[in-house]
Design a binder for these strands. Structure first.
Ligand code: SF4
Ligand code: SF4
Lengths: 159, 159
DNA sequence: GAGTTTTAAGAGTATTTTGTCTTAATTTAA
DNA sequence: TTAAATTAAGACAAAATACTCTTAAAACTC
């Protein structure tokens, strides 16, 4: 599995927040219900994103969580790095420690290229473009539900 | 982590076998010691590779394990698929079930491209080329040791 | 200020992955 | 035929990951 569950949940939540029409706080409870993620588990994951400054939270009624920057300023790599760390993009396909510093293994060049490909894709994809695309084409953000319940009531029979 | 530990050990062992000068059986004990992998754990992993036909084993003295096909015929994708399965290459970056069949999510096109990039790299890398490269350039196959102890005693002070 | 709503924090549990150990079965060789 | 060497198989244990539950702290409403 490329990304941890926590990272996947973080990405989905970020996309959900970027898709909101207004920029107010959204409660973690609402996110967990809409995206079908365990509330307490999600709370911990989002804490990681607030501690790195990608999101900000507010307690009490009317509280919740929101992106600090606009969706177009947040790329997927930032989110992955905040939750799973950068190991995926620095470590070795063969699990050998100390890559790059010491003598490489025969797979290195090919693996480094592939690894950079993953990174490039994540760095060059921002939340805004995904949210925009999801809304326009009414794509999905959870197993069954999509972006239709983010819009007012545009297209409900698109199946 | 892209690949499981078991898969990593399987790849390293395969590369080790492809690097052997003769085509006899190599005992799992020797592989586990040379590559610093738990013997019993490695035994289980290599059983997966024999059960899929990539390797064949032989019990008793003079027994061990060896590749069924020549190294140039075995690409890394086959080994990964045999141990970790093909989920990495079919499933979703966002962990949503039923990808491709139902409505896609906004990340799909980009992720599918990246995913295919990983697969392409693995499918187009065979054990023979890695073994050849490792020997020629005296690269490493474990944390400290490399291909030098596969050769007779060619270059021992290459550090 | 009291009560409610929300995130924060940490302990605790469950599941999966990773690794160990023991026993059995097979093969070789003396 | 006996002993040694090896893989096969499965129970077991440890560690990492994923998830749950409880309590605390903060912020809002009245
Ligand atoms: S050189 Fe590349 S492939 Fe080899 S151990 Fe380092 S990161 Fe891995
Ligand atoms: S369509 Fe979406 S859910 Fe399916 S594999 Fe692609 S990114 Fe994942």
């Amino acid at each position: 599995m490329l990304l941890s569950k926590g990272c996947i949940y973080g990405l989905r939540s970020s996309l959900f927040l970027a898709s909101q029409e207004n920029d107010g706080y959204v409660s973690i409870r609402e996110i967990s219900e809409k995206l079908d993620i365990s509330f307490h588990f999600l709370t911990k994951i989002l804490q990681q994103l607030t501690s790195t400054g990608l999101m900000e939270s507010h307690k009490g009624p009317k509280g919740g969580i929101r992106l600090t920057k606009s969706g177009s300023e947040v790329n997927l790599f930032e989110i992955v790095a905040a939750i799973d760390g950068v190991e995926l993009f620095t470590e070795c396909a063969l699990g050998l420690p100390g890559c790059g510093v010491k003598k490489p293994c025969p797979l290195h060049e090919k693996w480094a290229g592939t690894r950079d490909g993953i990174r490039y894709m994540l760095e060059n994809t921002n939340l805004m473009e995904l949210a925009k695309k999801g809304k326009e084409q009414n794509l999905r953000i959870t197993e069954h539900g999509g972006f239709e319940w983010l819009l007012n009531n545009d297209c409900n029979d698109a199946s």
